[in-house]
Simulated assay, not measured.
Amino acid sequence: MTCRHDMTSLDQRLSALDLSVLPTWVYDHGRHRFPWVNAKALQFWHATDRAELLSRDLSDLSPAVRARLDGYLRVLAEGETVLEDWTLYPRGTPATVTLHGQPIDLDDGRLAILFQALPQAASVGASMVRGVEAVRHSSVLVSLVDREGKVLFHNPAALRALGDAPAIDAAFPDEGVAAAVRGAIDAEAAWAGEVRVVTTDGERWHQVEARPTTDPVTGARAVLVQQLDVTAQRRAEGQVEEQGRLIDQLNRSLALVEEQRRQILNLSAPILDVGRGTLAVPLIGRLDAERGSELGERLLPAIVAQRASHVVLDVTGAEALDPDGAAALERLAHAIQLLGSRPILTGVRPEVARALVDVDLGDELLVLRSLGRGLEVSRRRARGGARRRA
């Protein structure tokens, strides 16, 4: 029978239940208190007296218990009743009972739950009780649905995440997923997938498994649906993938920068074949160890390939040399000589000359005023060498 608020007080309305053989109490979920209890409830909760029990603070609830009670209030607000097995812990001692709950109005008009504790059948084993409690406190969402997808059971984790929608389809925005979950009832194996799920916290990603089973109450075929939230893992994988993409993009950018750098170096130190066995290399900008090494990698093979007898290094456009730049020019001149070619240095300005005072450029290095003069000398020598060979 559903109790409704009238002009009588809560104590007056429930006076007939005070002598009930069943432990009976009213639970105020908003304030986490017992506003009314009968004599059997005092014994059940191991209370010293009624005042002590009514003063107990019951707010220290686990998330699973809170979710179950929240769900009860939604059901009771519709005028329905609830009947479910609970393991309660009066004074720390476990007691498994079947709780029958119905709506009742408190004296201030708020909705509360009138609970009656029915003793469990003796045949209920300890392993079954523990199994039921484990499912209720599990963080995995566990649901039992029928052939049409109607929810027969949600554990507290599922209630918190999915609410009290009557059908499991509401959780899956993809109709194909919802159909696959319902269809598992006739499948030979479980269906599983990582899918988008609409929850009370918004859209999430769940690893879902739908396994055919039997409803233990009716004996009809049903589907056991288990869901594990993998949103954080999926986001982490997405971040790793994004970081990999950014690294690839960075590597491509670095490769492009390196290629552009090489092109700039080539332009700032081009190797020109001016004929008659002569290569001209106008050096522009800063000459340091790195540029000297890069130029050597290009120039020395060109000397061999062109069989160049003279190499004109023009430093007219080069910046003032520091010790590293002077050393780089020294190494380059010696390398040219080792290949049997005559190095000619042109366009030496005073600031470049000062940097080369303490540098040994070798006896074979010819220093001339301008690039034009260097080309003229190299061509004349080439003609002279040709006549001698003739």
Rank of each mutant, 00 (worst) to 15 (best):
R33G: 01
V352H: 15
L313D: 00
G384F: 08
G374L: 14
T8K: 00
Y89M: 02
G275H: 05
H32E: 11
L295D: 05
R182V: 09
V198R: 01
V37N: 02
A333W: 00
A255C: 02
E294I: 07
L58K: 14
I104C: 09
R33M: 08
R298Y: 11
G372K: 13
N251S: 06
A157Y: 09
Q116D: 03
P63A: 08
E290M: 10
H5G: 11
P63Q: 05
N266S: 10
H334I: 13
R387I: 13
A289D: 08
V217I: 15
D324V: 13
V357Q: 04
G109M: 09
D273N: 08
T199N: 05
L99H: 09
T200V: 02
D324H: 01
A51N: 02
V197F: 08
T199Q: 05
V352E: 10
G176Y: 01
L54V: 04
D363N: 12
G244S: 08
L287W: 08
D186T: 14
E78G: 02
L313N: 03
W25P: 04
G101P: 00
G30C: 07
A126R: 14
V37R: 04
L22K: 13
V315C: 11
A326P: 02
L250F: 10
L265P: 01
P301H: 10
Q120V: 12
V82W: 03
R261V: 03
S62C: 13
S62E: 08
G292Y: 11
F34N: 13
L99E: 04
L106W: 11
A121D: 15
A126N: 02
Q239N: 10
E376W: 00
I264C: 10
P350Q: 15
L19N: 15
R286M: 03
R196P: 04
A255E: 15
S59K: 03
G317N: 14
G325L: 11
A47L: 08
E290N: 03
G149T: 09
L114G: 12
S139A: 14
I168T: 06
D273V: 11
R74N: 06
T199G: 01
D70C: 06
P216C: 05
R383F: 01
R276M: 15
D11K: 06
D186Q: 10
G149D: 05
L228H: 14
I303R: 07
R211T: 15
R235G: 09
G238F: 01
I344Q: 06
A280E: 07
E290Y: 03
A77K: 12
R373F: 07
Q233R: 06
Q227V: 10
D363I: 13
R196G: 13
E376K: 01
R276P: 07
R276Y: 07
L228R: 15
D174G: 06
A335F: 06
L300H: 13
H206M: 11
L162A: 06
P90T: 10
R381A: 12
A220I: 03
P90V: 11
V274H: 02
R160F: 00
R147H: 10
R379P: 01
A167T: 13
